[in-house]
């Protein structure tokens, strides 16, 4: 459905940030893109969504295809209109509009059919019951979790076929992260929408996704089915923060750095 084929991204004509990224999202699949700060996850997402152009970045090599159409030269709004909705990093609501108006902006890409839009709105409220009471509140004054719900709801209002999520867990309490990800899984299950999920929180991302890619320094260093990655010793140590419990660290752990270095190479 979505194929990213060996792309290279350059900012301001000189700064090479992505070096040959390839990934695939199949219909109905949730795919996670993991990595540390500055690994290039968000840039990959922006390359797909077309927002790169606004930041003086460009895809200089490779191609991005969605259902057989090239995306890498299209402006952001046209890509959204093809059926790719996105939840931007840090929520980014229209702060002075109400929660409900924010949701409605998501439906602007659809034909003006009042009853259908109303139905979608009810569906979003069914997924996020707390929003019902907040619908007429100014979005900028909602709490972080509430804003994230509005941001995801707004993307759902477009009835996308592919949903791009950029760090939905950012700045949220752990309990809220669980709630939001449970909802994401549920929506994927019920509507069959494909999702590409960018996350730093590897734990929750690997629980949610079927397949995952790990990025470091603008390259993909590892990929595989999510359960497999969750068992991988390196992933456990570098991303999930797990070591063999109870054992004392010894100088042999210096190897750790060698192993990590091999990744960064």
């Amino acid at each position: 459905m979505l194929t990213v084929n060996n792309i290279e991204v350059v900012y301001s004509d000189v700064i090479l940030v992505l070096r040959g990224i390839s990934l695939k999202v199949e219909p109905g699949q949730i795919v996670a893109l993991l990595g540390a700060n500055g690994a290039g996850k968000s840039t990959t997402l922006k390359a797909i969504s077309g927002l790169l152009l606004r930041e003086n970045g460009a895809v200089t090599r490779g191609s991005i295809e969605f259902e057989g159409r090239r995306l890498d030269k299209l402006p952001a709004e046209e890509i959204t209109r093809l059926g790719i909705a996105q939840v931007l990093e840090g929520r980014r609501l229209f702060q002075h509009l109400t929660a409900e108006e924010n949701l409605l902006t998501g439906s602007l890409v659809r034909p003006n059919n009042r009853s259908e839009i109303k139905e979608s709105l009810e569906r979003v409220y069914a997924y996020f019951p707390p929003l019902v009471k907040l619908r007429h509140r100014t979005a900028g004054y909602l709490s972080g979790g509430e804003q994230q719900m509005v941001a995801i709801g707004r993307a759902l209002m477009a009835r996308p076929r592919l949903l791009l999520l950029d760090e939905p867990s950012l700045g949220l309490a752990p309990l809220l992260v669980q709630t939001i990800f449970a909802m994401i899984r549920q929506y994927n299950h019920e509507s069959g929408v494909s999702m590409l999920l960018v996350e730093q929180n590897a734990h929750v991302a690997l629980q949610t996704a079927e397949y995952a890619y790990v990025m470091e320094n603008g390259r993909i260093v590892l990929d595989g089915p999510a359960e497999q990655l969750a068992q991988n010793a390196d992933i456990k140590e570098f991303y999930l923060g797990l070591t063999a419990v109870g054992e004392r660290k010894s100088y042999r752990d210096v190897k750790h750095y060698k192993r990590r270095k091999r990744w960064l190479g």
């Binding site: 077309g50 927002l51 402006p75 959204t80 229209f94 902006t105 602007l108 890409v109 993307a155």
Partner: peptide, 20 residues
């Protein structure tokens, strides 16, 4: 609504598919 959204933030407006 599209105009009010665009007035707030061009990038976000584009990301929800508004032709600014």
């Amino acid at each position: 609504l599209a105009m009010r959204a665009t007035a707030e933030n061009h990038e976000t407006a584009q990301s929800v598919g508004i032709r600014i």
